[in-house]
Design a protein around this nucleic acid. Structure first.
Lengths: 192, 192
DNA sequence: GTTTTAATTGAATGATTGTTCAACAATCAA
DNA sequence: TTGATTGTTGAACAATCATTCAATTAAAAC
């Protein structure tokens, strides 16, 4: 009962997420959010609580919408090693203007995680999800004979997760595409 | 002539750098800087200009004092491959509380470089310096027969620079030391 | 000792920050 | 129709932000 919402919760949250993704947490003001989300201050506080809560909701939305889609590449049927290759090619083939946003999770790790426990916990769960996707993918590769039986898949999954971070940071500064493709080749060469 | 400075420029700049390193640009206020640097607002503006200029000075000071020291590991005499190993071991062996600060350059790439051309230029030069150090180190390794003649040292140097970024971001979130050591082993395994 | 030059100081600036709130509007149950 | 309930709205809040400035202090030049 009561007056019904005039906006779609997910739609506005998506817009907030985009803004945090582009600018980071501190550099995004409530006024910026009001402009982008298309709803008034009161409605934001009413629906999402304060800025900090909204940010965490945005990060979780990012994980659900963006990260999940990337993880699905690793989980798709077919050759696991080919999927991992596809995963990194997707990162490299992102257009350079979008590449400058990097990844909301990596950005958050750098900007907030060290000083904000709540954010750190939120982000840690998402990072573990990515790492697990790598691990399962590698395990499947061993099962299918694409990797030797004695492969240390756990260590390799940690390496791939770290490499992902590295590529994203590199992409945010000097965005030389050939350079990044070469790096991906070296990363993939560790899987043989 | 005129009244002499009562503080040491480098000493206060060093303190400003430490604060930016710990908290980032946006999260550090002038008041925070006044407290940490031990000089009044006026003296800061007098000596370093505005906040943005002070930050760039701090980044350059970081490059001169911190980054240079790390690069010297790569340039020191003896086995180049051993030096690279030492380089990464230094990163991993940083105590975990200090590891959360990460690297001021990486942090700046993520927080500011995409939106701030002046900062981006400053940082790009420093990143190129690191990459060149890797390159020279690898070239020397080829000369000394530690790496095969046909090694693509340029590509490998890009890979090592990217890996450095990756390790630093990983260090800022879940700081499992064994995990990071394992990753370093994989990184180093590409050099054989 | 007077003048000149520059650093220090603390108060004040206006802009922006995140957040709250009272008045109003729209729906539902009675 | 009348309350109850909830969303919308825009103004207002105190706090903090980066920055400026006039008054003061200290040294060097004359």
């Amino acid at each position: 009962m009561g007056r019904p919402c005039e906006f779609d919760r997910e739609e506005t949250l998506s817009k907030a997420m985009e803004l945090f993704w582009e600018r980071g947490y501190k550099a995004t003001s409530i006024e910026d959010l009001v402009d982008r989300m298309g709803i008034k201050r009161g409605s934001i506080y009413n629906t999402f609580g304060d800025k900090h809560s909204l940010f965490i909701a945005a990060v979780e939305y990012y994980a659900k919408e963006v990260t999940s889609r990337t993880i699905k590449i690793l989980e798709s049927p077919g050759s696991p090693l080919e999927n991992i290759k596809l995963f990194f090619e997707t990162i490299v083939n992102t257009p350079s203007d979008k590449k400058k946003r990097g990844c909301l999770i990596s950005n958050t790790v750098v900007e907030l995680a060290p000083h904000d426990e709540k954010v750190a916990d939120t982000v840690r769960i998402i990072l573990e999800r990515i790492q697990n996707a790598f691990l399962h993918c590698l395990d499947k590769a061993v099962e299918l004979g694409e990797l030797p039986e004695d492969t240390d898949t756990k260590v390799l999954s940690h390496f791939l997760a770290t490499s992902t971070h590295g590529l994203i940071v590199t992409g945010k500064s000097a965005v030389d595409n050939k350079q990044m493709k070469d790096v991906v080749d070296v990363i993939l060469s560790t899987l043989h």
